[in-house]
Design a protein around this nucleic acid. Structure first.
Lengths: 350, 350
DNA sequence: CATTAGCAGTCTGGCCAGCAGAGTGCTAAT
DNA sequence: ATTAGCACTCTGCTGGCCAGACTGCTAATG
């Protein structure tokens, strides 16, 4: 038994064959036979030899045949090996990078529009479904607070953070406040905490309320309790999915039931968010192949994702979702570059 | 030739048969034959008679047969007649109304959440796709204006309207303004225009700028030109679509290409918005059947919609989209009631 | 004269056999 | 170790066949 058999490492030739097999299979979706493979490679070996090697690859669990007299198709393990060590990512053409850059930069300057556009571009350029989580900074600088009285004991709190994001929340209070009370409270808070991190502000608020309650006048106490309520609910995390209809073109998803459960997962959002969350750790492009994601409806799908950062802080994840049989060597650089562009676009708009 | 033949009006018996034919066809999607129809009705006529009547109905263009030896299925004209004069809408059960009511009312109190929930409920209760346009009032009462300086000549304008909606826009100006200038301008505008209708404010702004420019001090001119910019861009109208995956269960849409073009229309949004816009005129439930919508991808779909109002003013449209073969007698009251509930829910949250 | 029974005609959908095409695994030769 | 050759197998397509379901027509009926 020679080195390229059994559980050992793979022959270089075998690797090369696996690579071309996957590339070929990705191209036209048909199981690849030995004859085709022998013609495709420059190795100059006969189909018979290829058949032997294919048997080895099958032992390794890297390829499989759908039935006796079909060619081979890659298994998930095969794809895994491919993306880990075999794939040669083509650097993107300058023109493509420019198009991406313009597409994102030109999309107005609010964060939501940038994100939506990035998602659209991802789906356009890859012909898969693009997905981008809304940015979510650890460090949100509080700029200003306003309170407006509503009916009953309710108050509309408006927080301006990071100089262009506006959040507003309705808070229920224990008693009603008039306009001037609220204005005083808002001014006090803005003065006191403006320029500080939101999380930090929240902590200081909690402390202040506990420790110095006695020494503060009623207005400040009120202001703080109002503000505390306003900070309670964190931002709702979310993502923008575009081009999901692209997925309907793939034969492996033409089964309407599979497609439906896939779309249902998208609509439910929770699972996808959880999955994307995992991509936050680690930097650079990450790939989930098929079952690796742990979600059944994503069974025959892969996720290629990359976190994007502003000021060296990871604020979100973007990527594409498509069938396991996708052109990784093209998708990977697109995801990679888009993440970088989006990151800097968000930065420059701050 | 008797009264129920040719282009004349329809026999009562013929109408009854058309009705049960449609009800039956809606139920199980199969062409309905004369034998079935004779058993289904209490008319006590033989299949042969039914066949004669069916021939009449076919002359009238109300039913058609897919091929020689199949039963009949309703045409679009048939459905049209059905919904116009034949259908007996069952009033909803109290329990259902309550569930709808609670489902919408309990969904927090911002408008966006209410709308999203209404859409979800529509899709749940009908097993079709639910759609609700975001409310858009003619009369938006301006409550307050704030300006915050950004980098360069840009300013973040925050408008509070109708006491709980907050809009913010970034505007480019011809020169930069410092914080105190902006505050003055904001105060001036809020004082001057607070409580007025946004559209009206805009008009007054344009006039003021033209007529009295000379007599105003620079600050006011600045304030007005800033505000004018802020009012320029109208609200972006939009809709919330839920449960589109429900549509994948219908046999008439199992063709993946039809499904795709349908979903593409949803994603493009523009056409759907235009279609829904048409439902604004006229009150009560409106129905588009198949080609009537004028949009090709909606070929085999119907839209059942109703406008919803706050304070007697129509502010949006909601409805469901599903295959032409849908249970109108159930869908119609659901849409109707949901529109009313959503309207009053929006009112009470003002 | 409307209604009905009966009958011939027709279209679909499922089933099966047969066949070409593609590819494998094995064996024996190089 | 590689390769040529061969027998074998599995798919996908085609055409024929048959049962089932309806219709439209004609002639009979109250």
């Amino acid at each position: 038994m020679s080195a390229n058999k059994g559980r050992g490492t793979l022959d270089e030739r075998a690797q090369k064959l696996l690579k071309t097999l996957i590339e070929r299979y990705v191209r036209d979706g048909q199981p690849v036979g030995s004859r085709t493979l022998s013609r495709e490679t420059a190795l100059d070996v006969s189909p018979a030899t290829i058949r032997n090697i294919m048997a080895d690859l099958e032992d390794h669990g890297l390829v499989a045949s759908p039935h006796t007299s079909a060619g081979r198709i890659p298994t998930e393990a095969g794809y895994r090996m491919f993306v880990d060590s075999l794939v040669t990512v083509k650097p993107l053409k300058k023109k493509v990078v420019e198009e991406l850059n313009e597409g994102i930069t030109d999309s107005g300057d609010n964060a939501q529009a940038l994100v939506a556009n990035a998602s659209k571009l991802l789906s356009q350029f890859t012909q898969l479904a693009g997905v981008v989580t809304t940015p979510r900074r650890e460090h949100n600088q509080l700029r200003q607070i306003e309170f407006l009285p509503l009916s009953g004991n309710r108050v509309l709190a408006i927080l301006v953070v990071n100089s262009r994001e506006v959040q507003n929340r309705i808070i229920d209070l224990d008693r009603s406040y008039n306009e001037s009370e609220l204005r005083q409270a808002a001014n006090y808070l803005t003065e006191q905490f403006g320029g500080n991190d939101v999380v930090e502000v929240r902590e200081r608020l909690i402390n202040d309320l506990k420790n110095t309650q006695a020494s503060m006048n009623q207005m400040m106490v009120d202001a703080i309790s109002i503000a505390q309520r306003a900070f309670e609910a964190g931002d709702t995390e979310d993502f923008v999915l575009e081009g999901q209809t692209n997925l309907m073109d793939f034969a492996e998803l033409s089964d309407i039931d599979k497609l439906r459960s896939l779309f249902d997962v998208f609509a439910r959002k929770r699972d996808i968010l959880h999955l994307l969350d995992q991509c936050t750790r680690g930097q650079g492009v990450q790939i989930f192949i098929g079952q690796e994601s742990g979600y059944e409806p994503l069974g025959e799908c892969s996720v290629v994702s990359a976190p994007y950062s502003v000021d060296n802080e990871v604020v979100g994840v973007l990527g594409v979702i498509g069938p396991t049989r996708m052109a990784y060597e093209q998708v990977i650089p697109i995801v990679d570059v888009t993440a970088k562009i989006l990151g800097s676009a968000l930065k420059s708009s701050t």
